[in-house]
Design a protein around this nucleic acid. Sequence first.
DNA 1: TTTGTTAGTAAAGCTTACGAACAAACACCT
DNA 2: AGGTGTTTGTTCGTAAGCTTTACTAACAAA
Lengths: 384, 384
Amino acid sequence: MTTTSASNAGFAHGRALRPSSKVLPEHARGHNRSLVLQTLYRSGRRSRADIARETGLTRVTVSALVADLIADGLVVELGQREETRPGKPATLLDLDRSAFVIVGLDLSEHSTFSGALLDLDGTISARAEVALAGSTGEAAVEKVVALAQQLVDQATVPILGIGVGSPGVVDLGGVVLSAPNLGWNGMPLQSILNARFGVPVLVANDANAAVLAEHSFGGADSDAMLIKIGHGVGAGLLLGGTPLFGSRFAAGEIGHVVVGTDGGAVCACGKRGCLETWLSIPNLIERLEEEGDAARTAVLREAGERLGIALAPVVGALDLSEVILAGPTELLDGPLAAATVETLRNRTMAEFHGSVTLRMTTLGQDIVLRGAAVMVLSGQLGVS
Amino acid sequence: MTTTSASNAGFAHGRALRPSSKVLPEHARGHNRSLVLQTLYRSGRRSRADIARETGLTRVTVSALVADLIADGLVVELGQREETRPGKPATLLDLDRSAFVIVGLDLSEHSTFSGALLDLDGTISARAEVALAGSTGEAAVEKVVALAQQLVDQATVPILGIGVGSPGVVDLGGVVLSAPNLGWNGMPLQSILNARFGVPVLVANDANAAVLAEHSFGGADSDAMLIKIGHGVGAGLLLGGTPLFGSRFAAGEIGHVVVGTDGGAVCACGKRGCLETWLSIPNLIERLEEEGDAARTAVLREAGERLGIALAPVVGALDLSEVILAGPTELLDGPLAAATVETLRNRTMAEFHGSVTLRMTTLGQDIVLRGAAVMVLSGQLGVS
DNA sequence: TTTGTTAGTAAAGCTTACGAACAAACACCT
DNA sequence: AGGTGTTTGTTCGTAAGCTTTACTAACAAA
């Protein structure tokens, strides 16, 4: 049954069966393969028989799939189980978590592109940064390529793929349709990187990447919304474990939604009272400086209230159970978050949405690049 | 290859492959079977070869699947294609659209349960109603059973299934978790009807059913939100063609979300300024009577503005392309709808969401029961 | 030593889809 | 009229995938 699969191939599946597309036995096989992988990924050190019981597949089938995975270098045998019990001792298996690395890039910061090398567990083994120095357009793409190259050069094992969290609107093919700060309009970043490095590349919106990270590493449940507050305000939505992209790939773009019915500051976009005018970090800092230290709490509370006002209809309509904030802790985690959750509860139906929780991310600065890594994991291995 | 499938069986599949569950060849077969059915459903009168080209399956496979479907009585041969062209003339096929009927029930009206018998195209061949007469709890269930029985008795061909659109919160197993007006709390309506009639039954929230109907019969696209305005206010969401249920099955329950930052009337739920206080039909009528004819437009416009204020964050966050209103045309289709769309556009980012459209449903009073029928179609045949 | 249990493998069989090849039926060209 | 090419739908054989059945290996308990 040794499948003699050519070198590194075998898990470069297309993935993503579109709903209305034929299903061949081979696709079913790929699915079951991912299922085995996923079982090992979530908690390793299981025997073939354990996996069979857990997945519902037979031991025979699991053995065949595991043989494939071992041949591909993704799974290793760890030796026999210590535990003493009747019957033949089990051979424990685990993902070879150091067999591959993932390159994760975060393009969402204002003046820096940062990246890291992550193993399959999400452990970071190397980091790199490039200063943006005001680059836009092609020059900014060159910075991305340079950053990726720096990380690729540091890898000592094969690279599973490159994941990128980019600001702006990104379509499903990894084309950045619009990222004003970087001067990108229809920039095919995914193709460019793929052509350059010859490995699978996945590009998505930064907030979408972030919510994936929070789901995989931060314990967020399957219906969650992550609000990313920085130079702008954006959101990533996870519904039933699947990221939401929207009809024009602009889901989560809530920075320029008007909040409340009582005016507000004029926004760069021309409207008055956009969420960003209250909540973006530059605006927040400006207001804090204007009003002075005495009014600090009041300013933060008001920003939090505005966020709550904007989120209430969304939480209600989507029946979200969890809202997560990402951004500078010193500003967000305090009166602002408290006011947001209060407002949210006062404005939604307790019976349905009373138990909505709001918390800060636990992943700190690395949230986007970890999310980018999750995209690769899920795209290449069907694991998340 | 005649499958000699026992009488009516053969398409009573479980459906709904959960993402993390094994896939057997048999499941793949079911998928491909649905694929063939779906191509015929959308526009019939195709040959086996046509279907093969369209689905990507081979003619051989399509022939086998079609033989199954003919044996099950779902597909019929129509004879040879008239059109004259080279090659052996094709044998045209179509769904046997009158081979089965679907029972669709609408429990969302205030004082009446209504239902209909629909064929696979959604054409209504019989109707029935029962007066609710204030029934709640078990008594209300009896009314539902009586209504279904009335329709079942009128059917002259086998019944594909019963679909029900119920108010309130309904879980995926068709248990009505909470429907205050009917006094239902954890009422297992789906099991009850299934036990009673021995055919597949699907129960879902009325607004969810409605948005499915609008998608299948009303031309709504795959990312749409339907606002159902009646005694209460609720919404049904379709994202990527899939209905959204939410973490507690309460998605779309937006009637008691507070709108705006300037107070409003006190609601039955205790809060002030809920969407329902502005928009529910009883409240709207009351206000129209209070303010008199001269203020009619102003009252309707204000209600529309409130709806727009509540929807803006949702449209922004989800990047919806289409919002649909269902309810009394004489109140909704005019100043109210106009004000809603204006408000929506003023409060969202034109670049992303500018082309959001808002319109009335084209399905009138039958929207919920048609949606209930779509649920059966999609659940039993994988067609929609 | 016997009994019963568990792990993993091997062989055979079923299902499903595919490709090759073919006959039937037709249009079109000479 | 007859040949040529095209299209349809079927038959036959094959490849892939999972299951069932049956087996061996390895262990604990009595």
